[in-house]
C-alpha cells in the first residue's frame, strides 16, 4: 500500500475517533442543560406525575449512559431519531423525524456555503498571490486595509450596510433571502446574493492574508534566490517556486473558513431570514428539542472533521517528502 493511502486511512480513523469523543461531549453537555423538554412543554403548573409520565413516554427516565448508547447506536445506522416538538401534553403525536427536519435546512446551508466559497476562495487566492507578488505596493496596502476593515465589522453590521446600499438605496438585490424547495435555481442565487456577499466579506481577509503570508514566508528560502538567479521572473518565482510549497497552510485556513460557513452563520441567517441549519439549532435549543440539537451539533462536528481531513490530505499530497519517500 502506498504510504499516502496509509496516512489517509489513519487520518480517517482519527477523524472517526474524534467524532466519537465529540458525540460524548455533546451528549454530556446537553445533560447538563437546566430543565428538560417535559417541563418546558407542560409548563410550571404541571404535576410531578404528569411530567414523569411524559418523560417515560420520551424515554428520558432511563439512565444517561443507556440513552447515549441508544442514540449513538441509532445514529450509526443512519437514524437520527424523532424530534420532540409536535408532541403535546395531551398525547397527540405530530412529531417528525429529525432527518426530515434537518435535511432541507442542511441543504440550504450547504448551498449558501457553496455559493460563498465559489466567490470567496478564488478571490482570496487571487488577492493573496497578487499582494505577495506586489508586496508593499499601494495595491498591497489597499487590499490589506480593505479586507481588514471588512473583517473588523460585526457580520450583522456588514449585512445591514449591504442591505442599506444594495437593497434600499439602490434596489439591486432583495433584502430577504426567503427561499423554499420550489424556488428555481437562478432565483435562489439571486435571492441569496446579499447573504453570500456578506459572508464573503467576512472570510476573505483571513484566507487572503494567510495565502500572502505563506508565500512571503517562503521568499526568504535559498531555493527562491536560486530561482531568481536562474532568471525566473517575479511571477514565475511566486507561482512556480513558492506556491507549490505553500499549499499546506493555505488549505488549512481555507478548510477552517469553509467550516465556519457551515456552522457559524446563524447571525447572517437571522438578518436575511434565511432558512438555514443555524436557525434550526437555535430554535431547538430554546424548546429543549434534544434530538434535533444533538443531530445539528454532530453535523457541525463532522463538517469540521471532514474539512480538516481534506486540508490534511492536500497538505500531504502537495508535499513530495511524504508523497515520494526516500
Amino acid at each position: 500500500m502506498h504510504p499516502i493511502v496509509a496516512t489517509i486511512l489513519q487520518r480517517l480513523g482519527f477523524g472517526l475517533f474524534t467524532l466519537f469523543v465529540v458525540s460524548v461531549i455533546i451528549f454530556s453537555a446537553l445533560e447538563l442543560l437546566p430543565g428538560d423538554f417535559g417541563e418546558a412543554v407542560l409548563g410550571q403548573a404541571a404535576t410531578e406525575e404528569s411530567v414523569a409520565a411524559f418523560r417515560e413516554e420520551l424515554g428520558l427516565d432511563k439512565p444517561p449512559y443507556i440513552r447515549y448508547f441508544e442514540w449513538i447506536g441509532a445514529v450509526a445506522t443512519g437514524d437520527l431519531g424523532t424530534s420532540f416538538s409536535g408532541r403535546a401534553a395531551s398525547g397527540v403525536d405530530r412529531s417528525r423525524s429529525v432527518a426530515e427536519l434537518v435535511a432541507p435546512r442542511l441543504w440550504n446551508t450547504l448551498f449558501l456555503a457553496g455559493m460563498t466559497a465559489v466567490i470567496a476562495v478564488p478571490l482570496a487566492l487571487f488577492l493573496g498571490i497578487t499582494t505577495a507578488l506586489y508586496r508593499n505596493s499601494i495595491y498591497d496596502r489597499t487590499v490589506n486595509a480593505t479586507t481588514l476593515t471588512a473583517i473588523s465589522f460585526p457580520e450583522f453590521f456588514v449585512a445591514y450596510l449591504l442591505i442599506l446600499f444594495l437593497s434600499s438605496l439602490y434596489p439591486i438585490f432583495p433584502s430577504l433571502a426567503n427561499i423554499d424547495d420550489t424556488t428555481p435555481f437562478l432565483e435562489r442565487v439571486y435571492r441569496m446574493a446579499l447573504p453570500a456577499l456578506t459572508l464573503t466579506l467576512v472570510i476573505v481577509a483571513h484566507m487572503m492574508r494567510m495565502t500572502r503570508a505563506a508565500i512571503i514566508n517562503l521568499l526568504a528560502s535559498p531555493y527562491i534566490e536560486m530561482a531568481q538567479l536562474k532568471g525566473a521572473s517575479r511571477s514565475e518565482v511566486i507561482l512556480k517556486h513558492a506556491l507549490p510549497n505553500a499549499w499546506s497552510p493555505i488549505a488549512t485556513v481555507i478548510a477552517f473558513n469553509l467550516a465556519y460557513l457551515v456552522v457559524g452563520v446563524v447571525v447572517v441567517e437571522v438578518v436575511f431570514v434565511y432558512p438555514g441549519i443555524g436557525q434550526l439549532m437555535v430554535d431547538a435549543v430554546t424548546t429543549r428539542d434534544i434530538p434535533v440539537v444533538q443531530a445539528c451539533a454532530l453535523i457541525f462536528a463532522a463538517t469540521y472533521i471532514i474539512l480538516n481531513l481534506l486540508a490534511d490530505i492536500i497538505g500531504t499530497v502537495t508535499n513530495p517528502r511524504l508523497l515520494h519517500p526516500r
Binding site: S221, P222, Y223, E225, M226, A227, H241, P244, N245, T318, N319, P320, R321
Partner: peptide, 11 residues
C-alpha cells in the same frame, strides 16, 4: 549555492 539541500526547490 552553498547548501544544495536548501537551494533546490523541494516541490
Amino acid at each position: 549555492a552553498q547548501s544544495a539541500a536548501a537551494a533546490f526547490n523541494p516541490a
